[in-house]
């Protein structure tokens, strides 16, 4: 079972890879909408990326209003 810290790091790494950013560019407290400037289609892509990586389903309504990686990782953790 992953720890919350491991999950957070994996989310940061997935996001950096997906948006082709250098490792270490993103931090747990970052607002990913502001930092990455993503639109609705990219949000869906990121959701797929996360679900495929962790082998979970993360309903959109559970991440609605979530804008930082740390809270996102908590939502993922509750589905692992």
């Amino acid at each position: 079972m992953r720890t919350l810290e491991q999950t957070t790091q994996e989310v940061l790494s997935l996001a950096a890879q997906h948006f082709q950013l250098a490792a270490g560019t993103l931090a747990p407290e970052d607002d990913f909408f502001k930092k990455l400037g993503i639109d609705s289609l990219q949000t869906l892509e990121m959701l797929s990326r996360i679900e495929n990586h962790f082998g979970i389903e993360l309903p959109d309504y559970e991440v609605q209003g979530v804008s930082d990686f740390k809270t996102l990782a908590e939502r993922i953790q509750s589905r692992l």
Binding site: L44, L47, S48, E51, N52, E57, P59, D60, Y61
Partner: peptide
């Protein structure tokens, strides 16, 4: 009823 998106695997 949820309007949620489901992934391709599901």
């Amino acid at each position: 009823f949820t309007g949620r998106t489901v992934n391709a695997t599901r």
